[in-house]
Amino acid sequence: MSSTYNSNAYNFGFLDENTKRMLRRALLKAVAIPGYQVPFGSREMPLPYGWGTGGIQVTAALLGPNDVLKVIDQGADDTTNAVNIRRFFGRVAGVATTERTADASVIQTRHRIPETPLREDQLLVFQVPEPEPLRTLEPREAETRTMHALADYGLMHVKLYEDIAQYGHIATSYDYPVMVDGRFLTSPSPIPKFDNPKLDRSPALMLFGAGREKRLYAIPPYTRVESLAFDDHPFEIQRWEHRCAICNAGDSYLDEVVVDDRGTRMFVCSDTDYCSQRSDNAATEEAA
């Protein structure tokens, strides 16, 4: 792949090389201290804050001309924001893109982890709106940083305790807090808790970018990631009574789709690549 530069006079991957170096240094620090939020000089990107500016900067700092990029939003490659970010990198980096999880070397994601297991040679880049898992409980940044420094996380358990006291179980369904390597309380980004187990000891390096909040963090390969729970109220993931209406998967995260004005619903895989791979395979088997 040689089309590294393009017509609009921006550097490969939009960011200048010094900025990329700054990002890589911050990412190295993040990898060295799993789950710790590294403050970094987030740049103003030509995409709005909250739309993936952190993820885009991480991807831009790591993309090489031979990379194959996949971008998903809500598990799907064809949602408008995913398309827009893919278009952006097509325009400023000219790298190959793919919708197949298995073919990608870098995957930027918003709100999901692909169903297809990731490998050691893949990078998963998360877009993070609010990196601080304690923020809703404690708004002061100076205070939350101290709480992390001292691993003073009793407050987080107060919240979980209250959930159980009130609802009989922990009522957090997404952005479910985790302990990374037994040390830092960390936001997994707003993925459904269904995806939390995929974080634990993942072979792929997971990088998290929060552009507006100017923080980076990482979960290095094979790191222990535990979802918070009580001994007698263990962590549980969402389950469905249905299977995917398209590929019949019984093990994937399902989106609910309203198909008519009488409220008829169907359930389909949120991971569109996973779903179409399964459908294709089924079709091939049938034909054979």
């Binding site: 909250g50 739309w51 369904s173 997404y174 707003p190 993925i191 459904p192 995260y253 949120s270």
Partner: peptide
């Protein structure tokens, strides 16, 4: 304004 982006997955969880 990022609230107008899809939040299907989280909404489904809720």
């Amino acid at each position: 304004q990022h609230l107008k982006l899809p939040h299907y997955v989280d909404f489904q969880a809720e």
